[in-house]
Write a protein that binds this DNA or RNA. Structure first.
Lengths: 193, 193
DNA sequence: GTAGCTTGTTGAGCGTTGCTCAGCAAGCCG
DNA sequence: CGGCTTGCTGAGCAACGCTCAACAAGCTAC
């Protein structure tokens, strides 16, 4: 019986291995708070020793920060407006895609937000970077000056949006278009003062 | 030299001990994410063995959940309107006291919110209970029916408030009364649709 | 082909930390 | 003094993050 079902290639290139490990982290995200990913579990799933994981990520924190960043990049890539989009439609489009994203990856997204808000400063930083980039794009699309006041307001509106959309996906209290209109309306009223 | 400086009473009553341990947790909160409180550290500060802590709190989770709940109760006690307050002033008063609370206990409060949002479901539950109670009081004071829609809106507004107040304490972009007026205005416009 | 280099990979092991358990001892009652 | 309750401890286990010396796969050079 020489027919080993998965003749698992023993040696991978460094890039392959890193990508695989991060991928495993992403798959584990929805079911496990980032910081509670255990090196043992990840290594087991990858079919490697714990030591190898520490070869690629010097510290456990390095590892789950990388996983968090990968999750954030996936979301950003999906949300950011396409290069040619008209300014006026950028916010509407991002909002629409954001709701779609939360609908599609509810558990993962919740895990990302939670893990981000929770405890670890490194992970929080990744989250804040992501949020700040989205806010910057929104400010730009709204043709607003990028001052502290507007930035605070839009950021807080983003918190509002995150919370409301999260609740809405669990219990839809209004039709989807109405949700989008409400969010857009709150934002417009906030920044036109 | 029989003058032991602190003739630490060796035996405490169960209630005393519990209270002391929770108190130590509260003191550690601002500097340490709840879940990262180590049993060793707490026991050392209390001058007892690790084992005793496990006698009072079967599990580490039990312990820091108790600490979180104590923090939440402190805040609730400070925010909830006094028994005789007029309905119309309850929301304004709570809002005012909330901003005051964040100003006074910035680090502790941030630690509470973070620890709450982060990872652990037990802690998240304490946070959600606290938030729900505040939302319920607000809904009552606004004389709104306690339906899912209004509850979602007020809860999301609370997320907005939490975020904006947090940012504002770090970088005050407007006078305090204006902040209060803005928050109140956003809430009113939200629920009168 | 084999010597030698790079580098992906491992196993043994250490320190910390959450948690268990058997048992000591302080205070109270008879 | 004997016996009971109960606050309390020390030894020790298992899991986990992390280190380190060394093995071995795959490539190039002679």
């Amino acid at each position: 019986m020489t027919a080993a079902p998965a003749p698992r290639p023993l040696r991978r290139s460094a890039d392959d291995r890193r990508a695989q490990l991060v991928q495993i982290g992403l798959e584990l995200l929805p079911t496990t708070p980032v910081q509670e990913l255990t090196i043992d579990e990840v290594a087991r799933r990858a079919g490697i020793s714990r030591s190898l994981l520490f070869h690629y990520f010097a510290t456990k924190r390095d590892y789950y920060t990388a996983v968090t960043r990968a999750a954030a990049d996936l979301m950003l890539e999906h949300l950011l407006p396409p290069p040619g989009a008209a300014l006026a439609e950028q916010v509407t489009g991002m909002l629409d895609r954001y709701v779609g994203w939360v609908e599609a990856y509810r558990e993962s997204h919740l895990a990302f937000v939670r893990g981000a808000a929770g405890g670890d400063p490194w992970v929080a930083e990744v989250y804040e970077e992501t949020r700040d980039r989205l806010v910057a794009v929104a400010l730009d699309a709204l043709e607003l000056p990028d001052g502290p006041l507007h930035r605070q307001l839009v950021t807080a509106w983003f918190a509002f949006t995150e919370d409301l959309v999260g609740q809405w996906t669990r219990e839809p209290t209004m039709p989807r278009p109405e949700l989008l209109a409400l969010l857009r309306d709150v934002l417009d009223r906030l920044v036109t003062r």
